[in-house]
Design a protein around this nucleic acid. Structure first.
Lengths: 228, 228
DNA sequence: GAAGATAGTGTTGATGCTACACCTTGTCAA
DNA sequence: TTGACAAGGTGTAGCATCAACACTATCTTC
């Protein structure tokens, strides 16, 4: 925790600026979001998004990535600015502008979130069963989810949920989870393969007592491309 | 101009927060953007986006709308948050976070922008012939333009450029200007009419020495709907 | 070797998009 | 008054894209 030794003065009042991150992953077939339980007032004991104050010499993206790393230990994941929330009394302490981001984590990765110093607990929560949230964080999550679903349609964002290698069935499950509806297997495979976004590794994935599946990898795993 | 009588102190450094607005309209058949010439340093004499500092008790949207009204006299226009820019040294004075918006003004409306107190001049500039811009405002305009063109495809945003009543040819001209390509007249009319977004006023618009055109109005002029 | 579980594969009909040309209706000037 | 001009207004046919749909293949386990 930072110990202030001096104060910082301005001729006009300045708001505080934070970044908050909506972290999505797919855990056990359910879209899930990372929440931290607040250790301190305001909203002590309530669940909230991971996030924190912007350092004065730190870029916004860097701040979001740092908060994400601090809360989850994860680095180099997909992270994109979402929207900036700044209603006048969204934080009772002082005027706070929150630049929000959303991050996507490969499904069932062993992301062991560790509680940061100012959080009493941290954990994944199924998106369709979220607890009450502090501040306006419910609005933020709602907007992040809408953005995510919208981007499924016209970008390769779903690949950000995939581990390095995966099968077509696993990819289809991700789409079905995010869209919350079943998809036709043949049409799905036709569309994905026609986009020329994935390549066979040559290996077969054998899991369970059934026919093994071809293993694929994304051709451009680090970029989210606009398609169609 | 505000005269500070006191200073505002915080235990940690706070950035300043501004809103900047990219105002688009179509003027003489060309997509145009409103710029102000800066009266004061930094970047004195350069062109910049209209915008200014957030009041401490003012919502972000309100701030953007206020800046827009102050610079152009326009109210109740389409205004939507774009992105938040916060690179550490984008403003040489202090750390400044800019929450940017874009606004759309009906084409050829007699928007007589008046110079605000801190601007030496204000005027419309064709988008394809912009002067050098202060700060990172070129990036902001580029992003606003991309957003605008993208939204043409899946929303009714183009109607925000139309006056209360208009003809189909005028609407087509707006699309052609924004997309920077000609469109087929029959296909365009079929698509627009099939969307059930406009209604005939019953009047005819007679301009020039040729057959008069049917006059239409938007059924929901104040809302931008997602289509398809 | 039979049962169970998931992998993998094509065709058809419907729908939507693109390309394309001519007649209509007004103004204006000879 | 009439002919030239200028933009308004209209339909069809081919093509590509999307949705619906069922069976065989391959592996494990008992």
């Amino acid at each position: 925790m930072r110990i202030p030794r001096e104060t910082f003065s301005y001729p006009y009042p300045h708001p505080a600026v934070t970044t908050d991150v909506v972290v999505f992953t797919i855990l056990g077939g359910r879209l899930s979001t990372l929440l931290v339980r607040r250790a301190n007032p305001p909203h002590q004991g309530e669940w909230a998004l991971p996030g924190g104050f912007l350092d004065i010499d730190e870029d916004l993206d860097t701040c979001a990535a740092r908060e994400l790393a601090e809360e989850t230990g994860l680095r180099d994941v997909f992270l994109e600015q979402l929207y900036t929330f700044g209603a006048t009394h969204r934080d009772p302490r002082e005027r706070v502008i929150s630049v929000t981001y959303y991050a996507l984590i490969p499904q069932d990765s062993l992301a062991t979130p560790r509680a940061a110093s100012d959080a009493a607990a941290v954990g994944w929560h199924a998106f369709d069963a979220l607890p009450p949230l502090a501040f306006d964080h419910d609005q933020i999550i709602t907007m992040a989810h809408r953005r995510l679903v919208a981007k499924l349609d016209y970008s390769t964002i779903a690949f950000q949920f995939m581990p390095e290698t995966f099968t077509l069935s696993e990819l289809q499950c991700v789409y079905e989870t995010l869209l919350n509806q079943p998809l036709d297997k043949r049409n799905f495979r036709k569309r994905i393969l026609s986009l020329d976004l994935i390549a066979e590794t040559g290996n077969m994935r054998r899991t369970g007592n059934h026919r093994p599946a071809r293993e694929y990898l994304a051709k451009h795993p680090d970029t989210v491309e606009i398609i169609k």
